[in-house]
Design a protein around this nucleic acid. Structure first.
Length: 643
RNA sequence: GCUCAUAUAGCUCAGCGGUAGAGCACUUGCUUGGUAAGUAAGAGGUCACCGGUUCAAGUCCGGUUAUGAGCUCCA
């Protein structure tokens, strides 16, 4: 039979040869590092027989695919077996690979905590040490059910029963055949290929990811081909931990949370300075891009939320208020606004709008409250009260494309100025829970896709992830350590304007319903500030920093000159302060560096005599002595670059 | 909301049945110094909250609240 290799060359091999035979035929080095094969695009075990002409590529242990298979074997053959050895009564569920590692879900009546991970790792090492071969048996559905019934593995039985195949269920064994796992494979040919691994955490996870199902124990691990890669990965996690905005927010005295208001931020003076700087920046950009800023009420009668459809879909997640008993005659149910859009429609609806008024772009830094489930809150990243850089564009159908283009340009300059040069675009289509007819959805999805296509931006499609009122574009940026954050959004809405009776008079003199576009660039200020802190590891760009310059005196003789410098900087709108304390200069440098102050000017007798300053910037230990006037000019320039 | 864990000084944490501890920060004294911690002393806590066991509870048990890691969710 003819085997075609990835480079399009081909080889003749006897029928029934395996991937291993092929690798051996090509060379002994390849045979040594081969662990699996891809046959006509499907990954298979190395020793599976190939029965007919096929395109085959050998998967080696040092490839990305090889690494994933190694992790999979580590999970399904080693971790699973170690758990069964230590907790014989536990029931195995599934053990897939995930980004950077793997996990195994088990049901266990004994609780397994992170303290037990060391013990499980030891057991895994014992299993790996056997360097056992991994062999496969193919059995019928009946046979497979019998085996797992006698092994008391109910989750495996469910998996088999739900499968639509009748035979060829793959069972994997090690040398002693005491452990068996059902698996779609492929696996390593033997345990000798396993590299460096570490179990990382334990948590709960629902069977099949459904919150109605029982909760299983999930054990996470990670594995790499060698110790160095594993250590590198662990160091990256460490780095992310160092950047955690909750830790830095405390250290930099930016904000706090407390029991009485879970999920709601207490902004401290410095945090609020940062917040206002960011808001002013966005506000100026909105003005430049022909948005009109508005403001709408915090508490609105449920009638409006019923009309908008929110009451129906999101009642559970809204903060509800009632007027108390004393004012019984005014008794009515209100909700704290979870969104700004119905409010904006009320403003639009005042007076008659003409097609000449469109597109009309309203913007609001609207404070919204959403009752997020208790387990989902996370520092600034997920809160119950947050301010969106929200906006709604009322336009006609044929303005959709130009509005899409204008928005993407608008968003990309803001991201770039905040230090995020790249972003991805995601197009999300109709979800299951939605309002509006299928015809309307067809129209909206087509319009949005046409707009983005014609503009030539690359995008990927996320089926079923749209808002309940329309399809959307989401903008995902990548931070300094490679993490992705979904921030911007651009949502077409052919429903809400109609539900809330918004209209305009067209050229034909008749009433038409405008298209509404919900859009945000940062998303929420709270979350975005969290992202900024983590992206910059607290070392914010100069113009955003809540403390910009500290003038630190080396001896008290230069206090007057130091204060003079501070005054000059303040005159230029710089946030400058003097540190005249009776402390050593190294002490002051350390303290202000820890606070992430971008610029420290150290002042001693030399500087005073020469009318200079010694500049030290955060993140560097270099110093530079510069003429005072030149320094102020330079600092002022840096500050005004984006303000 | 679910599973597991955690809650002690401003911060980071130790203490795990018998009168509350450390380091840093803070206050005061001495120290005027050249780019990431000068020095000595002092002050600081209803051990998250409610209940139980015990002669005795930060310490053991139950509940509540919040936080953390996941899961589910996110207009």
């Amino acid at each position: 039979m003819k085997i075609t290799l990835p480079d399009n060359s081909s080889r003749e091999l006897p029928k029934g040869s395996s991937g291993y035979d092929l690798a051996k035929d090509i060379g002994p080095g390849l045979a040594k590092s081969a662990i699996a094969v891809t046959i006509d695009g499907v990954q298979r075990d190395l020793h599976d027989a190939i029965d007919a002409d096929a395109s085959v590529s050998i998967i080696t242990i040092d490839s990305d695919e090889g690494l994933e298979i190694m992790r999979h074997t580590l999970s399904a053959q080693v971790l699973a077996r170690a758990i069964k050895n230590l907790y014989p009564k536990s029931k195995l569920a599934i053990g897939p690979t995930v980004q950077d590692g793997f996990y195994y879900d088990v049901e266990s009546n004994e609780s397994i905590s992170s303290d037990d991970l060391g013990k499980i790792e030891e057991e895994m090492k014992k299993i790996i040490k056997t360097k056992s071969l991994i062999t496969k048996k193919l059995v019928s559905k009946k046979e497979a059910l019998k085996i797992f019934k006698s092994n008391k593995e109910p989750y495996k039985e469910i998996i088999i029963n739900e499968s639509d195949q009748d035979d060829n269920f793959q069972l994997y064994y090690q040398d002693d055949e005491e452990f068996v796992d059902l698996c779609r494979g492929p696996h390593l040919p033997n345990l000798g290929f396993i590299g460096s691994f570490k179990l990382t955490k334990v948590s709960g996870a629902y069977w099949k990811g459904d919150s109605k199902n029982s909760m299983l124990t999930r054990i996470y691990g990670t594995a790499f081909s060698n110790d160095k890669d594993l250590q590198n990965y662990l160091d990256n996690i460490e780095e992310a931990l160092k950047r955690d905005h909750r830790k830095l927010g405390k250290e930099m005295d930016l904000f706090h949370f407390q029991d009485e208001a879970p999920g709601m931020v207490f902004w401290h003076p410095d945090g609020w300075t940062l917040y206002r700087k960011l808001r002013n920046f966005v506000r100026d950009r909105l003005k430049e891009n022909n948005y009109i800023e508005v403001n709408t009420p915090q508490v609105i009668d449920r009638k409006l939320w019923e009309a908008s459809g929110h009451w129906d879909k999101y009642r559970e997640n809204m903060f509800i208020t009632e007027i108390d008993e004393e004012h019984a005659n005014e008794k009515r149910v209100n909700a704290l606004k979870p969104m700004n859009c119905p409010g904006h429609v009320q403003i639009y609806n005042q007076g008659i709008k003409s097609y000449k008024d469109l597109p009309l772009r309203y913007a609001e830094f609207g404070l919204c409250h959403r009752y997020e489930p208790s387990g989902t809150m996370h520092g600034l990243m997920r809160v119950r009260a947050f301010t969106q850089d929200d906006g709604h564009i009322f336009c006609t159908e044929n303005q959709i494309e130009s509005e899409t283009g204008l928005f993407i340009k608008f968003l990309s300059t803001i991201y770039a100025d905040l230090g995020f040069k790249n972003f991805d675009i995601k197009l999300s289509t109709r979800p299951e829970m939605r309002v509006g007819s299928d015809e309307t959805w067809d129209k909206a999805e087509e319009a949005l896709e046409a707009a983005i296509k014609n503009l030539g931006y690359p995008y990927r499609i996320d089926e079923g992830d749209g808002a309940f009122y329309g399809p959307k574009l989401d903008f995902v940026l990548t931070d300094a350590i490679g993490r992705e954050w979904q921030c911007g959004t651009f949502q077409l809405d052919f429903n809400l304007a109609e539900r809330l009776d918004a209209s305009y008079v067209g050229e034909d003199g008749k009433k038409h319903t405008p298209v509404m576009i919900h859009r945000a660039v940062l998303g929420s200020f709270e979350r975005f500030i969290g992202i900024l802190i983590e992206n910059y590891a607290g070392k914010l760009p100069f113009w955003l920093s809540p403390h910009q310059v500290v003038v630190a005196s080396i001896i008290s003789d230069v206090n007057d000159y130091s204060l003079e410098i501070v005054e000059s900087l303040k005159k230029e709108g710089i946030l400058a302060e003097a540190d005249l304390r009776n402390e050593k200069i190294s002490y002051k440098i350390r303290e202000h560096s820890n606070r992430k102050v971008p610029i420290i000017l150290a002042i001693g007798n030399n500087e005073k005599k020469d009318k200079t300053v010694s500049i030290r910037r955060i993140g560097s230990t270099d110093t530079e002595v510069v003429d005072l006037k030149a320094a102020i000019k330079q600092i002022t320039k840096e500050n005004s670059a984006l303000q």
